[in-house]
C-alpha cells in the first residue's frame, strides 16, 4: 500500500505527541521525591543541604525516561525516519 508524504508527516506528528506523554511518569516521580525531601527537611532541618543535593541527583536520574520520550518525539518530527 502506498502512503503519500503528507499522511506520513501527520502520523509522525501524532506519534510525537503521544511520545511526550512519557513526561507524566517523571513528573509523578519527581513530585514524590520532592515531597519526601520536604518531609525529611521537616524532621531534620539541619541536614537541609545534604537532602537537597540528594533530591536533585535522584530527580535528575528519574528525569531520564521522560527525556527518552522527548528524544523519540524529536526524531519523529525533525529526522523523519518514516519518509
Amino acid at each position: 500500500m502506498e502512503f503519500n508524504t503528507e499522511f506520513i508527516l501527520g502520523c509522525s506528528a501524532i506519534g510525537a505527541g503521544l511520545a511526550v506523554i512519557a513526561g507524566i511518569g517523571p513528573g509523578v516521580g519527581q513530585g514524590i521525591a520532592a515531597g519526601h525531601a520536604a518531609a525529611a527537611v521537616g524532621r531534620n532541618p539541619g541536614a537541609k543541604s545534604d537532602i537537597t543535593s540528594t533530591m536533585l541527583l535522584g530527580q535528575a536520574v528519574a528525569e531520564t525516561t521522560g527525556l527518552y520520550g522527548l528524544l523519540i518525539a524529536m526524531l519523529l518530527l525533525f529526522v523523519k525516519p518514516l519518509i
Binding site: A60, E63, T64, L67, Y68, L71, M74
Partner: peptide
C-alpha cells in the same frame, strides 16, 4: 543511558 541523559537535557534546553 549516561550519554542520552546528558544529550537530551541539553538538547531540550537548546530547543
Amino acid at each position: 543511558s549516561l550519554s542520552l541523559r546528558l544529550f537530551a537535557n541539553i538538547l531540550s534546553g537548546v530547543v
